[in-house]
Amino acid sequence: MLERHELEAFLVLAEELHFGHTAERLHVSTARVSQTIRKLERRVGVPLFNRTSRRVELSPVGRQLYEEVRPAWTRIGAALERAIDTGRGVTGTLRVAFTGAAAGQLLVGATEVFRQRQPGCDVQIREAQIGEVLPWLRDGEVEIVLANLMHAPGIIIGPVLAREARMLAVPSGHPFARRTSVSVEDLARVKVLQLPVTMPESLRADRTPRQTPGGRPIESGPSATTFQEMLTLIGAGQGVFPVGAHARRYYARPDVAYIPFSDAPPLEWGLMWRADGATARVRAFSQAAWCTVIPEASHRRTAERSLSGA
């Protein structure tokens, strides 16, 4: 088993390819680095570096070792950092993502409250497309996301921060555009655009069902990977799609009309994070977001807030 100081010396030297620079980064003497590497090479049985008077290079074995060890060492360091953050409290940088303009506004409010409460923690905000939410969470691109709630293995769903009425986005020239409301059963009369197959089945079944509550089949239309692409397909007459009421305000287009559903349940928005990523700063941000939509004096009441701006 390799010792920690041996791994550190090997990895830094593999990146610096210079004994002096490696010693500076490790805060040890050049002789100590050289001694550690020679000891490690004796244990491995072959040279890990090719040395000349002018340059240092990784040997083939050394390069293979570096490529296999570096990712694992990075993961160990990240895990240790998360443990330290949990133990010390809310520090470091929280990476947060959102989907859609309305969620972005809600996220800004939550971030302001969080920064007031936790001045020692920075927040980096990114916009995600709907199909990027789960991959970004699982790959560690971001730690927490504000989006339409979706159930998936290994993902924690926080409190519902907002609810909004559902509407059907249709081409502006469609007969439905002249109506004051539509029913879920009306979906059997149109072609419904689809979410990417990479999305959780629970979300796809909710937004793009295969049949109406009465059992009538719903025709599937093309798939779209972004919301703007979805609206463009709708404007081109290729189908319709259920959206939240906020779309009427934030995504007004001359080629798309938004018609309220008379019998569909509201859409729910909230925070999501990885089950193994519930750090102190993630929990603190969730609490700050909750306080953004619910006054301190009424935390125990149910939150029902519209993203439509009405």
Rank of each mutant, 00 (worst) to 15 (best):
E3N: 15
E6I: 09
A9N: 13
L11A: 00
A14P: 15
E15Q: 12
E15T: 06
E16T: 13
E16N: 11
H18C: 15
F19I: 14
G20I: 11
E24D: 14
E24G: 12
H27Q: 13
S29E: 10
R32K: 15
V33M: 05
I37P: 10
I37K: 13
K39P: 04
V46F: 11
P47L: 08
P47W: 04
L48W: 07
F49A: 06
N50L: 11
N50C: 12
R54I: 06
R55L: 03
V56K: 05
E57N: 01
E57S: 12
S59N: 00
L65R: 06
Y66H: 07
W73V: 00
G77N: 09
L80M: 09
E81S: 05
D85A: 06
R88V: 14
G92V: 03
G92A: 10
F98H: 13
T99M: 00
T99Q: 06
T99H: 08
G100E: 09
A103T: 11
Q105H: 15
L106I: 04
E112T: 14
E112R: 14
G120N: 09
D122V: 10
E127T: 08
V133N: 09
V133W: 10
P135R: 05
P135F: 07
P135I: 10
L137F: 11
G140A: 04
E141P: 02
V145D: 02
N148K: 08
M150D: 07
I155L: 13
I157N: 14
I157V: 12
E164D: 03
A165I: 00
L168S: 11
A169T: 12
A169Y: 02
P175M: 00
A177G: 08
R178A: 09
R178C: 06
V182R: 07
V184G: 05
E185Y: 09
D186M: 02
L187Y: 11
L187G: 12
V190N: 02
Q194G: 02
T198M: 04
T198D: 01
T198P: 03
M199G: 04
M199F: 13
E201T: 15
S202Y: 07
P213V: 08
R216Y: 11
R216F: 06
R216A: 07
I218Q: 02
T225Q: 05
T225D: 02
T226A: 11
M230N: 06
I234M: 08
G239C: 07
V240H: 02
V240D: 04
A245N: 01
H246S: 14
R249I: 01
Y250A: 05
A264Y: 12
P265I: 00
P265H: 04
L267T: 09
L271G: 05
M272A: 03
M272G: 10
R274K: 09
R274Y: 13
V282Q: 00
R283A: 11
F285N: 03
F285L: 01
A288H: 09
C291P: 11
I294H: 15
I294Q: 15
A297Y: 15
S298V: 08
H299P: 09
R301C: 03
A303T: 03
E304D: 14
S306Y: 12
